[in-house]
Structure formats: C-alpha cells, structure tokens
C-alpha cells in the first residue's frame, strides 16, 4: 500500500516540524501576545505544548511499535531498560555532580548499535520506566521522553553514518563527541520547555517591540549564565562515561546484535 509505505517518513518529518514549533513556542509567545489584549492566555501555553509533545510521542511510538517490535526486540528492550532504571534509581538516591546522568549512556549506545528506532524507544521508555519506578511522574515527563527519544534516534542515525567505518577508534571518537554535544542539547531543550511551567524568563524579559532575534539573544545570555555550567558538567560526564565504557559496551551489544539479527531490521 502506498500510504503505509511512506507513513514513517511522513511521521518523522511532521514530528520534526511540530517538535521544532513546540520548542520555539516560548520564543514565539511574546509575538502572539502582541496581537492579544488579555493576560490570562499565556497560561495556556504549557498545556498546549504538552498536548503537542504528547501527540508526537504517540506517533513515534506507534511507528516504532508496528515496525520493529516482536518477541526478541521486546525482551531486549525490556532488560536493557531495567538496567537503565536501576542506574536511574541509584542516581536519584545519590545524585552525581552537576548534570551527569549515566542514564543517557545506554540510550546512546543502544541507538548507535541497534539503530534509530530502537534508540528512540530506548530513550522514551527509559525515562518513562524510571519515572514509574522512582515515583517521578510529573508534567515534565512527556518532554523528557521526547527529548531522550530524539537523543536515541539521532544516536541511531550517527551509527548508520559512522558504522561503515572499519576504524573502531574513530567510531568511538564520534560517539564521544556526540554524547558531549547532547549533554548541552538536553539541558537547553529541557530548559525551554520547562520554564513556561515555572516562570518564563523569556516572557519576563520580553519588552514590547523586541524582535525574535533579540528574544533568542536574551535567552542565550540567560542560558549561559544559569544552566550552562550545570550542562557543562553533564556534557563532560557524558563524554567521560563514553570514553570509559563506550568501547566495552559497543562490543557486548554487537555480539548480542549478531544473535538477535533475525529480528532487528530498523
């Protein structure tokens, strides 16, 4: 059938656009307000973003479910998630320095070895399961799932691009850089999405007549002053974890991939 065949491509393109829109919404909000007169409507923004992110998540999960899940991938994902949940559990009890979270390590490695869809599921469901287990279900959960899903997905794309390389060391270097970048990216994305719940600094610092560019400038300054140091820790931690464990973990997952390869086709 024509329609299902192109469904995956459509899904991911639409999600990218919608996701980008939801991401930029806090920046667009002042512009929207400019055309309004009331005050109360800014409060709808978080609900609106949550709904959008929720739908994007649903579409991504449906796509992955119908394209790659079978007894093998379900079992594989399940046990990998349980390890990640345990790691998260330890992390909640003993928080690491700065934003270092070992949870992202396995998401990225799994995506890198098993492909974008697997990485996406690994990312989304890692955050979901650990929220269930640690009692951390909250309004931020859809955002975390979506962002971590993108992390796994992009790790899978990186894997596709780099894994043809015979040089194992080069592969690892690429993954280390990628992991460090995501340390910053995750912080930045979560900031933008979470702030509307607290007290949107973008709206607060917005003054009539400010252009979109100025708003973004302002945000960047704000980000670099508040969150950057925190995220720098996270990025360094991600990179360091990848240096220390990346090679070994890729080796182990590669062996598993060989034994599971009759099932995984993503």
């Amino acid at each position: 059938m024509f329609w299902p065949k192109y469904l995956s491509t459509t899904t991911y393109s639409v999600i990218s656009i919608v996701g980008l829109f939801a991401f930029l919404l806090p920046f667009l909000q002042p512009q929207i307000q400019l055309t309004e007169s009331g005050i109360g409507h800014t409060q709808d923004a978080p609900i609106f973003t949550i709904t959008l992110v929720f739908l994007c998540l649903m579409a991504m999960l449906l796509d992955a479910q119908s394209n790659m899940l079978n007894a093998k991938t379900v079992a594989l994902l399940g046990v990998l998630l349980s390890i990640n949940t345990v790691i998260r559990f330890v992390e909640v009890a003993i928080p690491g320095p700065g934003g270092v979270t070992p949870v992202f390590f396995l998401i990225m490695v799994a995506g890198f070895v098993f492909g974008p869809r697997f990485g996406m599921l690994m990312g989304c469901l890692s955050l979901l399961t650990s929220a269930f287990v640690t009692g951390g279900v909250g309004p931020w959960l859809p955002f975390q799932m979506f962002t971590a899903g993108w992390m796994g997905l992009s790790a899978g794309l990186l894997g596709r691009a780099v894994r043809r390389q015979e040089n194992k060391r080069l592969q690892l270097v690429a993954l280390v850089v990628f992991a460090a970048l995501w340390g910053f990216l995750y912080g930045a994305i979560m900031n933008v999405w979470f702030w509307p719940f607290a007290d949107n600094p973008i709206q607060q610092s917005w003054r009539p007549g400010m252009s979109l560019g100025e708003v973004i400038d302002h945000y960047l300054l704000f980000y670099s002053l508040t969150s950057l140091t925190w995220d720098a820790f996270g990025a360094a931690g991600n990179g360091a974890l990848m240096v220390a464990f990346g090679g070994a973990a890729i080796g182990v997952l590669d062996r598993a991939h060989k034994r599971f390869e009759f099932a995984i086709q993503s």
Partner: peptide, 21 residues
C-alpha cells in the same frame, strides 16, 4: 491497548529491576 507491546516492554523492565539490583 493499541500500545500493548510497549506496555509489555515497560512491564518487563519493571519486573527485572529487582533482579538487576
């Protein structure tokens, strides 16, 4: 129920947490 497979994945993850510990 449309997400049965994913629900099973999460269930497995949760079931195996004590074992992993």
């Amino acid at each position: 129920r449309v997400f049965h497979q994913l629900a099973v994945v999460v269930t497995i993850a949760v079931t195996y947490v004590p074992l992993s510990i």
